[in-house]
């Protein structure tokens, strides 16, 4: 069985961590994955950087730029992940924008993901219609889950369509925002989370964007199967010793 499916069957309050490949140093990608698993992360989302990340706020923009300036490429990322499955057993997704995937070649990209043991992808600027028409077969052939985003403005009919098209989890944005905004769970957000919960979707849901501490994480877990942390983690590993900064960061989410 697919690693993602299995995880959601076995576990609640799932903690997924996003980080940018090749940041803070080009060679850090795999070590961060190992450290995160050791300190209790349930899913990893490894970002492959892009020069024009329109859905990202300043922190992830900066980490992407630094990574690219230091020579990161998608090709290099797959080389870095060659031994991924010798060292990491939790689900791993790649997250990034569509243009680098197009240049790499969709077929070749899916093959490379399968080869290194990546379980799925999140490509925010790849629309559902394009996915259905040109990518889906290839993703399914290589047993890759494609995760779609929904926002408080996503219509119910569309949410059901997304639910039918994906087989990993659904990425629930706490609000329509670029990455790095703080989660303010007011009445409208709670109403939105409850509305989604009551749709009884076939896929599990993960809440993302603006989760930064134990309190916001717990809150998110009360409405969904877990939550995703990105910006706060990227900030935390900006400088200093990775072993220390990763474990210190992860400690905050332990009881």
């Amino acid at each position: 069985m697919n690693r993602i499916k299995q995880l959601f069957q076995e576990k609640k309050n799932i903690l997924s961590i996003y980080y940018t490949a090749g940041y803070p140093n080009t060679g850090d990608t795999l070590q961060i994955a190992e450290l995160l698993e050791q300190s209790g992360a349930d899913i990893l989302e490894i970002g492959f950087p892009y020069s024009d990340p329109v859905a990202d706020g300043p922190v992830i923009q900066a980490s992407s730029k630094q990574s690219l300036d230091q020579g990161m490429t998608l090709q290099l990322l797959f080389e870095q992940l060659k031994d991924l499955r010798k060292k990491v057993s939790i689900p791993v997704l790649l997250m990034g924008y569509v243009n680098p995937v197009l240049q790499f070649g969709v077929e070749k990209f899916c093959e490379a993901c399968a080869e290194v043991g990546v379980d799925g992808c999140i490509v925010p600027d790849l629309p559902m219609v394009e996915y259905e028409e040109f990518y889906k077969d290839c993703f399914e052939k290589h047993n890759l889950s494609n995760v779609f985003l929904i926002t408080p403005q996503t219509a119910e009919e569309r949410i059901h369509k997304i639910d039918g098209l994906t087989n990993g989890f659904i990425y629930l944005l706490s609000s329509s925002a670029t990455t790095g905004k703080n989660l303010e769970v007011g009445n409208t957000t709670e109403a939105y989370f409850s509305r989604i919960k009551n749709l009884n979707l076939k896929n599990p849901t993960m809440i993302g964007f603006g989760i930064s501490d134990k309190q916001t994480f717990d809150k998110a877990c009360s409405y969904a199967n877990g939550a995703i942390i990105g910006t706060a983690f990227v900030k935390a590993i900006a400088d200093g010793n990775l072993e220390e900064s990763v474990s210190n960061f992860m400690k905050k989410f332990k009881d």
């Binding site: 024009d52 243009n99 197009l102 240049q103 600027d125």
Partner: peptide, 21 residues
């Protein structure tokens, strides 16, 4: 340029072999 996606549409754009603009 080469074919690719920038600012929401598929078109021709100047980019590296890695797809960076």
């Amino acid at each position: 340029g080469k074919e690719g996606v920038l600012h929401g549409s598929r078109s021709i754009l100047m980019q590296t072999p890695d797809g960076q603009v």
